[in-house]
Design a protein around this nucleic acid. Structure first.
Lengths: 205, 205
DNA sequence: AAATATTTTAATCATTTGATTAAATCATAC
DNA sequence: GTATGATTTAATCAAATGATTAAAATATTT
């Protein structure tokens, strides 16, 4: 008498809808997305979407939460690893993020846009704060800066240098006349350079 | 028999609509904005909006163009000034942008989101490329880097460090538990630090 | 295989929203 | 002050869109 008996092989309908929703939402944002687009992308009928998830907003919240989760999980392990030096951590964070963003380049602009439109939804998710500011990494950063500069500046700097090129990629491609291939090459170069740059920035304080 | 006879004192209706549109569009994006919201913000009837500007999209295009224009004009003068050293230019660019963005903090996320949604509209505006890459500044950058690194990386770096905190401000405020006041203090500090940081980054190459 | 539960569909509803229209108001010219 | 053109409004239209419904199809249990 259980509600879910069928063992879904690979892509259950529910999963297909979530995947499709992720694609469309991250590309067009919440208000730019029509539920019909998601249905089409998933290859299902519109009514199914409301059958599985009660509304567009519920579906959105799920997709959004999974995105933020994914964005944080990629570094959570690194930041509290007691074995790694500050420099090693920065290298790993930059590399992990660039790898993630090359696969999901629309993710950061999507997250930032929707958090701005609805900051209170994130406020619930306060563990973001814990992960970043109560980490071993943050402590290493604080020491390296000798309490002369707010370490938050460097959290911002690392994320800026890593993430911003993806947020600004359409602009960057036009300005630099870059093809996707050239853009990929650039962000690949940045994997090595960002840690060196951050190192240099730390030293001037 | 001229079409426009009335000499508008301060805020003509047309100007009021544009100002209102800018506020609402930059806050909610194109698809998140309802023309009724703009009308209300401007304190006018909805039909007036379609009387002055033919459609939501026409109004949007104008607002968008003025934003991009404003974003570029702030630095155009600086970049080609033959008198200024590279470091001086970086200082001025950072300071000018931070001043601009403190007044219009929603501008960059708005521009980036809408360019992504509609890159071809920007493509027409190719002078962005000219302003940045054919500038005296770019040449100074190229020399400072001894052709070892693509100067575009440093264009990206300067803009990243300057603009990204505003793009990510809702996130930054939650993570750092910052009030508006604290955020303002941080970006104010960055006016001085960004040039120092960039200097340090340049030296490691 | 019959009965039951689950999944999917086509059709439709109700609301939102961009846009239009026709009439009213206001300013300016004559 | 009347006429003319510009500006503004209230009412309404038409299309888009999120959601529902009732029935059909499919799977599962007995």
């Amino acid at each position: 008498m259980s509600k879910k008996v069928k063992i879904e092989a690979d892509g259950s309908t529910e999963e297909k809808i979530k995947t499709a929703a992720n694609i469309v939402f991250t590309k067009k944002g919440f208000s730019g997305t029509r539920t019909r687009d998601i249905a089409e992308e998933a290859g299902i009928n519109l009514a199914l979407l409301n059958y599985y998830f009660r509304s567009k907003e519920k579906l959105f919240d799920i997709v959004m939460m999974e995105n933020i989760q994914q964005f944080l999980m990629g570094i959570k392990g690194v930041l509290n690893n007691q074995e790694l030096s500050l420099t090693e951590k920065i290298s790993l964070v930059a590399e992990n993020y660039i790898n993630l963003l090359r696969e999901q380049p629309d993710m950061p602009l999507f997250i930032l846009s929707e958090i701005k439109a609805n900051p209170e939804k994130l406020a619930t998710n306060m563990n973001v704060r814990e992960i970043l500011l109560k980490s071993h990494f943050y402590e290493q950063l604080r020491r390296a800066l000798n309490d002369k500069v707010n370490p938050l500046h460097f959290i911002v700097n690392i994320i800026s240098l890593t993430v911003f090129p993806f947020v600004a990629s359409p602009l960057l491609k036009v300005v630099g006349e870059l093809k996707q291939e050239d853009f990929d090459k650039m962000v690949e170069e940045r994997k090595k350079m960002i840690p060196v740059w951050i190192e240099a920035m730390l030293k001037v304080h």
